[in-house]
Design a binder for these strands. Structure first.
Lengths: 221, 221, 221, 221
DNA sequence: TATGAATGAGCCTTCATTCAT
DNA sequence: GATGAATGAAGGCTCATTCAT
């Protein structure tokens, strides 16, 4: 119905607005302002602000799948490391703003079934991705025998918790500490003996380029 | 300036309102409605809604200390278990509403220095509490030698992440899974050999009774 | 310019929408929704919503003439009775919704010359119709000598007032009472001595079939 | 709760706005503009625009009772005449605007239970008033024996219908004609033999002075 | 002939905050 | 100490209408 271009325009504006003003100030106007369209146009394409946001979550999920494929061919340990570092990324990362705002949005989910539904889908994808990595690692012998499903849940909870505490408390230590402790206490029994989580990942989990068209990205130095 | 009674009245009303309507609907009116005072009274006692909320966080912290003492004399393992179960409490827990709303509030912290400051204090207390338990456990020989500081951070992140995913996704599995995996993968190396995390805690981490004056609490039915 | 078929499609949709949502919710979208055309199409065929509505009133008038003819050959008293019962129809009548909405529209006429003009034409037709019946009744000897013009005006006012009070107050008594009192106090001096208004009409004043193509009508159940 | 003065201010503004812009343009802003208060103030005193309007209908009713008393002591025929002329008032009457707008409001009643309820109360009062006059007239011998209840309903319907047709069609004839015909055909059998409806009433049914504080009223030339 | 997209103006309502009393 | 009244700024949403295609 809404053509891909318009959809992208609105979704990108939503992303920008979210990063710049946060979820609780994510007004229709704030989105429209980052668009060459009027506020009314948003309501032409989406029935309500809520539906627009739900569509945005879905848009994120769509992008996630593609980004996964980009590191598909890497060995399991590299993929896992990429994941860890994506989650526990440094505070200078330009995704901090986004994740911060997205936490606000997630905090609404208990009150909003539509959001909750979409976030569940997102959770499914994420867990499946990690499970697949773990499973592949077991197969390849890089990882020990274990239950990928429960380990995935544990890792996700831990990383998410660390990230949230980092953002909300402004305490970057959480990331560092949790990365190290995860490596030492959780992954020690998951990785094959002798295998260790590299200090830094060799592949980076790719960014959602749809939101970073013009600008630098992983500028060196 | 504001006497203790008035303060408590307002803080209790804030707690109630938070549980009933969530943070984003926590209007001055919503709080006043749960008070025998007028909306204006709130602004007489607190300069702004923001300050009131900040004061509320502080009020929570004040209560926390007292509650800690109530299980002070228990052996370290029991205290740890109480902590675990407090965090990973079942979905029927009447504190779910509060934690859900409080997550909304925490999600504002990145945008609000006042909140962030208070939440940091809260984080300090919580971490210290866990560190103390861990330290005592080492001393008593119930726990193995380890760095209480980093383990506390790991546990906090993991539990918090599990709880948040439970609430926001409506997926209770996270709690169960994470409790089990934490016991098996993290605590296995923290508890002394042969010591295990009990399936259920013997002491309950005490509730904040200031908010549960009149009503039932843990009355059996 | 606009061919008869398109015109009918739009007019019928307007009728439907009017019945279903009332005049104040009679948006262009509401009409288009009951059409296989787009909202824009309405503005292609009519310069404005106002003109469309004005055209609709005219369309009603056009239909009225034809329906009149259908009872043309009946004796004056029967025709008069048909009129009375059409106006003072029971609350189960499926025309209630239409008349209710049409009252809203009529209430706009004082502010809208275009509507007023059309409604005047409608009033003319209606009054003429009644006058003709009355005149024919005088001629045929069924009615006493009287001034058909003023009596028509009196009847119209009385019936209309009764109907409006019924609809707006939800008080069906008005219809019954006014029918009886009209018979006893007004028509007593209009009908020839010994002639009485039948309790129920033998002919029904015909419906506008253009709006009831497919559906039942007065099919018995 | 809302003190009488404020209430009057808002109700008077509502009256003015209604007269000047009609019901369908009776926005909160339109009312506030005729007040020295802000739009928000309206919502402080009334929960919604709808409730404000409902309160306005009630305010009208309150006023009506008092105005009735002002002609309480007049003989029945005079009172009846006052009523007739109030209803069938000339087009220059400054109440035309109000009645016109009020018709719009009444036309919403079928869709709005709150309005309908209030309008029913208004209908009750009006009918009782006329019934009382009729009853008194029978007692005093000025009127013939008849059923005041049904006659009141008939008169009300007739006058209301005439007025509505006058306003909506811009046809003043309705008033004149209906007044004459009512006198000749309806009241002829209601008034005692020899008693006639005066061409013009001697008492005027009093205006609602709450809405006409400063200005002229019936000042001659 | 028709439409999808878009928009500006406007509406109702909410809310933190102020202030005179 | 406390409150009732009030308000400005904003927000989500609607709708008649326009216009390029």
């Amino acid at each position: 119905m809404t053509d891909a271009d318009t959809r992208h325009t609105i979704m990108a504006a939503t992303y920008e607005a979210l990063c710049e003003v946060g979820y609780s100030d994510l007004t229709a106007q704030a989105i429209a302002d980052r668009t060459d369209r009027s506020k009314s146009a948003l309501f032409y394409h989406y029935d309500s602000r809520e539906e627009l946001v739900a569509a945005f979550i879905e848009y994120l999920i769509d992008g996630f799948d593609g980004r996964l494929e980009q590191i598909d061919d890497r060995p399991p340990l590299e993929q896992l490391t990429a994941f860890v570092d994506w989650f526990l990324s440094g505070p200078d990362d330009d995704q901090v703003a986004f994740h911060t705002a997205f936490l606000e949005l997630r905090a609404q989910a208990p009150y909003n079934e539509l959001y909750r539904e979409k976030l569940r889908e997102s959770d499914d994808r994420l867990r499946e991705a990690i499970e697949t990595i773990l499973r592949n690692g077991i197969e390849s012998g890089d990882f020990q025998e274990h239950d990928p499903e429960t380990v995935a849940a544990l890792l996700l909870a831990t990383f998410d918790g660390a990230r949230i505490r980092q953002f909300t408390l402004g305490r970057d230590e959480y990331l560092e500490t949790v990365r190290e402790e995860t490596a030492a206490r959780i992954l020690a029994d998951v990785l094959a003996p002798g295998v260790e989580l590299p200090a830094e990942s060799q592949v980076e989990f790719p960014r959602d380029e749809r939101f970073h068209d013009g600008d630098a990205g992983d500028r060196p130095e």
